[in-house]
Simulated assay, not measured.
Amino acid sequence: MPQRTLLFVLFDGVQSLDVTGPMEVFAGAEKHTPGSYRIRTASLDGGPVRTSSGLTLVPDGALTAASDPHTLVVPGGAGTRAPDPRLIDWLRAHGPRARRLVSVCTGAILLAAAGLLDGRRATTHWAYCDKLARDHPAVTVEPDPIYVRDAEVATSAGVTSGIDLALALVEEDLDRDVALDIARHLVVFLRRPGNQAQFSAQLAAQTAQRAPLREVQQWITEHPAGDLTVESLAARARLSPRHFARAFREETGMTPGRYVDRVRLEHARRLLEDTADGIEEIARAGGYGTPEAMRRAFLRALGTSPAEYRRRFHPAPAR
């Protein structure tokens, strides 16, 4: 098995967890399977860098002296807002030489500035997706997924999603059992699927200001299989259906139907990932009624069926 060299790019204002999160995953893989990875860090001049949290990181050397890696990892952080032009020049020259390009959080902004995301799909932290799309129109920005793979380029969303992406890469490089052992050691999911939304339904929607609407939001979350028609929810909020639908959208940013759809999909996904319940049972528990209705909802939102979703992303049982 060939050893893969990973080079983490360091710079002042880097987010420390963007570096250490994925690094812990790859270091765990190296301990599990010696010879699988060689991990290096480098800054522009080889000097220490100060992270956005105040932690000082001492790199292994300078980027100018680094050999071309198998995987180049570019983290994000406050330092991406006004990056050193020399860093962008280095990425532009050396990025294409890596067999695999990876960014964590706003590291995608650095890759885009170097022209390495042109014509590709990418994501970044939700707060910077609009900026990435506006500043780099040649990049197809996908704001929802926690990470996006486009051939040899992989970009991830905010902070902890770098761990999810690193686990996915370890599973690809080695195997699922190695990734599972690392996930257990780090006490994280084996990996959240890349197309999982950056926000849960509750976080994606605004919290309603009025108590009756907040209570309805909570009730929907706790009873995805209940009667969630507008008429029923309006009665629970003691409002007319028309007034309820208008107020709900004004205060949460989405229609009641859209909110119900997201809650039900999220609930079904959790059951598929975390339980051995049958598809028919999950369809009932999620409020879909029939497996076919759930299948249509999954195909519409995720482009895959519930059975395929489980096959690809359900963690293997502990041995």
Rank of each mutant, 00 (worst) to 15 (best):
A82R: 12
L299A: 14
P241L: 06
S305L: 07
F313G: 02
R191E: 11
Q206E: 14
V139Y: 06
L110E: 06
Q218L: 14
A78P: 06
V260R: 00
R97D: 05
F8W: 05
I220M: 10
G76A: 12
E250K: 14
A301W: 01
P69S: 13
R214V: 14
S305E: 15
S53T: 15
L87E: 07
P224T: 10
S67N: 14
P2D: 06
T123Q: 04
I163D: 00
G21C: 00
D177I: 14
G253A: 04
D68T: 15
R97N: 03
Q217R: 00
P22F: 08
G115H: 07
R246Q: 15
D173K: 05
R311H: 13
D118C: 11
L7V: 07
E172T: 15
L116Q: 02
R284E: 09
V148L: 10
V187Q: 10
S67T: 12
M23C: 06
T64C: 13
E250Q: 13
L110W: 02
L57A: 11
V153N: 04
V25P: 02
R214Y: 06
A27N: 03
D274Y: 15
R99D: 09
A297E: 01
L167I: 08
N195K: 08
Y309P: 08
Y309H: 15
R214P: 04
A108G: 07
A62L: 07
T140K: 14
R192C: 04
F248L: 00
A65L: 14
A247H: 11
E273H: 09
R249V: 11
R120H: 05
A113F: 00
A42L: 00
A42R: 00
A82K: 11
L17D: 04
G35Q: 04
A197S: 15
D274G: 09
C129A: 13
Y37W: 01
A297I: 01
G289H: 10
R296Q: 13
L116V: 03
D277P: 03
P306V: 00
L203H: 08
V148G: 09
T229K: 01
P224N: 08
Q209H: 12
Q218M: 14
E231F: 05
E152D: 13
D164H: 06
L44F: 08
F199Y: 10
E292Q: 14
S36C: 08
H94L: 07
L55F: 06
S67F: 09
